[in-house]
Nucleic acid binder design. Structure first.
Lengths: 183, 183
DNA sequence: GGGACTTGTCAACGGGTGTTGACAAATTGG
DNA sequence: CCAATTTGTCAACACCCGTTGACAAGTCCC
């Protein structure tokens, strides 16, 4: 393994941490570099700039090995986010989407990668475009619940055990998957 | 009406527009001032700085006259966000919460005002803390759906008529209100 | 071992930010 | 009508940002 790959990896790891915690604009390359123990200039050298680093980070964040393995994507996501022992690492991608989805500078990038790397493959395995509303509602429930519990910290969802939160989330997800549009 | 109040109003209105569209860090006082047709320095004069302007904007954003009128808060919110003719103005508060909720500089402010001005009064009218999970899930559904439709623009929810979106949102809200915790 | 290439360091740059204070213009009140 | 207060204008400030280029240190291969 080349020396530069190690540096690249350190930067990528620090970038993942930062971009999952704060929005693109709120994260500075100098913070990332400091966290990685590396000089700022190397970001431009190895990733072509801030946007390139963000894009590289998206690539690993949306690369779900469980998906490539071929399981039911919804089951995978449910297992990821409703298990009582769901770690913060599991939550990080969700948080990253919440925090960066509306950013004008990288929003398009995020949407595009999310579509091609997660949404479209999921839809394929769920039986085609007919499942789109259910998948969308499923994601809405997951994102909304994460936002209420971890970001807004509202009573009834934030001051509750992981089991109870899992039950609430499952309830919403079941509703999302049970939805049938106007026929 | 004093002249300065008009200026204050112009700044407040421009700030509302901006903070509903972009996050606190992504909005600059110079943009707001330009949109308001006013000098930048007046922000510091009349609101004490950027944070003061944001706080003043929160105060009007969370001041729902329908709530003060005494109606059922959930019914009010449902009417606001699931009617087919829900305008972007109705969506603006939702979008503002999504965009600014995770900001490290104003997140605490946002959470506090949201609690005292909307959540707590709503809970009171819903019969006390027992309704907290339902209210939290209701808000999760509303925020999540808005995020999926307007920010992430996922298929199945974004490429769909307002009526269909309203039906989907109603479905999720019904599930949220029907939830009963472990007894 | 010495030349070629890779990797790291550092300082500087132009640009944008929020905030401040001095000063001009306008408005108000006696 | 003039003095006092309010309101607006402008330039400057210190700070942080992402990016660049020159240069030193280290590494590898012939």
């Amino acid at each position: 393994m080349k020396k530069s790959d190690i540096t690249r990896e350190k930067l990528l790891s620090a970038a993942t941490n930062s971009f999952c915690a704060q929005s693109y604009s709120n994260v500075s390359l100098r913070m990332i570099a400091k966290q990685a123990g590396v000089d700022v200039a190397l970001v431009s050298r190895y990733f072509g700039g801030k946007r390139g680093l963000f894009e590289a980070m998206l690539e690993v964040a949306f690369d779900w090995p469980e998906m490539a393995a071929g399981g039911d994507p919804v089951a995978v996501a449910i297992a990821k986010y409703t298990k009582p022992d769901a770690t913060d690492a599991h939550m990080s991608v969700i948080r990253m989407i919440i925090v960066n989805g509306a950013d004008p500078e990288v929003g398009d990038l995020l949407r595009a990668r999310l579509r091609t790397m997660l949404i479209d493959p999921m839809l394929d395995r769920m039986g085609g475009p007919a499942a789109a509303p259910n998948l969308a509602m499923f994601i809405a429930a997951t994102l909304g619940a994460a936002m209420v519990r971890h970001t807004l910290r509202l009573p009834g969802m934030a001051d509750v055990s992981a089991e109870e939160y899992g039950a609430q989330l499952r309830h919403m997800i079941d509703a999302a998957l049970a939805y049938e549009g106007k026929q």
